[in-house]
């Protein structure tokens, strides 16, 4: 992390300021869900009246610019990965990533596919994995609560890792993409 170019007036110390920011951002996670696989099916019951995630302040947003939380819901093909990286880089810091199901963890069902990446964590920093094929809405709600707790304690620092190790993440991405413009 570099120094803040616009330091706040010293009425609130930097440490307390960051604590306030984390407190606010955990209660209002705006998410964009990138429907790559079967996990997108589990989102409607989580949003609507059965499990109602809006009571924690989590609402779906339409564009990555407005969102804080990226949900990668299923297996990631190489072609999809490029879009996921683009969406992730368009989001504003601080930003968080949750990945669904076994496929982004180790390839899952697609462990021997020529076209699917096996570990999402090598390409973008993932804050939380939900295991299972597929995770039920209860598991998703549990993951949201865990993420809120992590943010409050400052452990969800994927966006800081992405800044710090940007070259290494970019090198990993370029190994599968070959080129950006196709």
């Amino acid at each position: 992390m570099t120094d803040n170019p616009n330091p706040l007036p010293s009425i609130i110390p930097e440490k307390d300021w960051k604590k306030i920011q984390r407190m606010l951002s955990k209660r209002s996670l705006w998410m964009i869900h990138f429907c790559t696989g079967c996990g997108a099916m589990e989102m409607p019951p989580t949003m609507t009246s059965r499990y109602d995630m809006e009571r924690f302040g989590i609402i779906p947003m339409a564009t990555p610019r407005q969102a804080d939380l990226l949900l990668v819901t299923g297996y990631v093909a190489v072609k999809t990965l490029k879009r996921i990286v683009r969406v992730y880089e368009q989001m504003q810091d601080p930003k968080y990533v949750i990945s669904f199901g076994s496929c982004p963890i180790n390839g899952g069902l697609y462990w021997d596919s020529y076209n699917t990446i096996k570990r999402l964590d090598k390409y973008i920093p993932v804050d939380l994995y939900i295991a299972g094929c597929m995770p039920r809405p209860e598991a998703i709600m549990d993951a949201f609560l865990k993420l809120m707790k992590d943010i409050d304690e400052g452990r969800a620092d994927g966006w800081l890792r992405y800044r710090k190790y940007y070259d290494k993440y970019r090198a990993n991405q370029m190994r599968v993409f070959k080129r950006w413009d196709e």
């Binding site: 606010l24 302040g57 610019r65 504003q92």
Partner: peptide, 26 residues
């Protein structure tokens, strides 16, 4: 009306605070 619990009524103050505290590089 949609038979949900819904966010607390001060939710929009939190949202504005969060948005103004975010880093912005557009």
């Amino acid at each position: 009306i949609q038979n949900r619990v819904g966010p607390p009524i001060y939710q929009n103050f939190i949202d504005v605070g969060k948005l103004l505290a975010k880093k912005t590089n557009i």
